[in-house]
Simulated scan of single mutants.
Amino acid sequence: LVLSQDDVNYYEYMINSGFASKLVATKNGIKNEYIDANGKTSVGNYDLVPIVDEFIKDHPDFSYRGDKGTLAVTGYNGVLGYRTSVSQYGDTAKTKRETKKALKVVAALKSDGWNFASHSWGHLNMKTSSVADVKLDTDRWEKEVQPVVGKTNILIFPFGADIGDWQGYQDNNEKFAYLRQKGFEIYENVDASHMSWGEMTTKYYRQARINVDGIRMTDDLNGTNSVLNPFFNTSEVIDSTNRNK
């Protein structure tokens, strides 16, 4: 089982929408900060990371060799809820403070079994974008995000949009050539047509992920796609009281 979460950035558009606002390092481990509609701030298990951490306390065998999961981050709004992007917010004292806070959280996450992946800088659809745009975006991620989360060899495609087809990455694929040059060796797309598949070559490893989200759960409940069935029963975990809201 490969567990990953995309967009662990707590974007600006999420403010006042019921989402957590950031990840924070506390004496009780990594938690989320959450600000309710009245402006009250709470710290607790409001997103994937602390929920998985709590689960593993009771089920340590779920964490194979201490590994927990991979967090895929973009960079245009900063990372983990901290506004670290210099190109977005400027090279200011505030940006530096935010970066320092983010570095502390990243260190705590890594020491506790969490890994990081690139999700591109600007949530770029690498399949439809030009080679020039892929290069520009990758360079910006390397410049702004890598210094915060560290170097990674994992690329999780935004939108699950792969740069190759079923035949894999050919030698004339300029996007792959550049990404490989930048150190990426593991490529993750989204494919809910099968429970799992992977492709290993001497140059890369590529595999599919299943999007566990509202779209996939709705398909499961409607009977149009049952790919989640080996993992859990959707009708037992979904909040049916809010399904039509």
Rank of each mutant, 00 (worst) to 15 (best):
K151P: 01
M14H: 02
T92G: 03
W114C: 01
E188C: 13
T74G: 02
G214Y: 09
N16P: 00
G39P: 09
N32T: 14
E33N: 01
W166T: 12
N32H: 06
E199P: 01
Q207T: 15
T26K: 07
K135L: 03
R65N: 10
P147K: 01
R243W: 15
D220T: 15
Y169A: 06
V148Y: 04
K94M: 12
S17R: 08
W141P: 01
A208C: 15
I56C: 11
R97G: 02
T241A: 10
D7F: 00
G160Y: 11
G69A: 12
N189L: 12
Q207I: 04
N172W: 09
I154H: 05
S17C: 08
V106L: 04
V79L: 07
G39D: 07
S42N: 02
F232V: 02
W121C: 00
I238Y: 11
F232S: 05
G183V: 12
L103T: 13
V212H: 05
F232D: 06
S63F: 03
W114M: 02
E188K: 11
Q88H: 11
N115S: 12
A177N: 15
T218N: 09
S118A: 10
G168R: 07
L48E: 06
L228C: 14
L136R: 14
S235L: 03
S196N: 11
S129H: 07
T224L: 08
I156K: 06
G198C: 06
P60G: 02
I163M: 08
N28P: 00
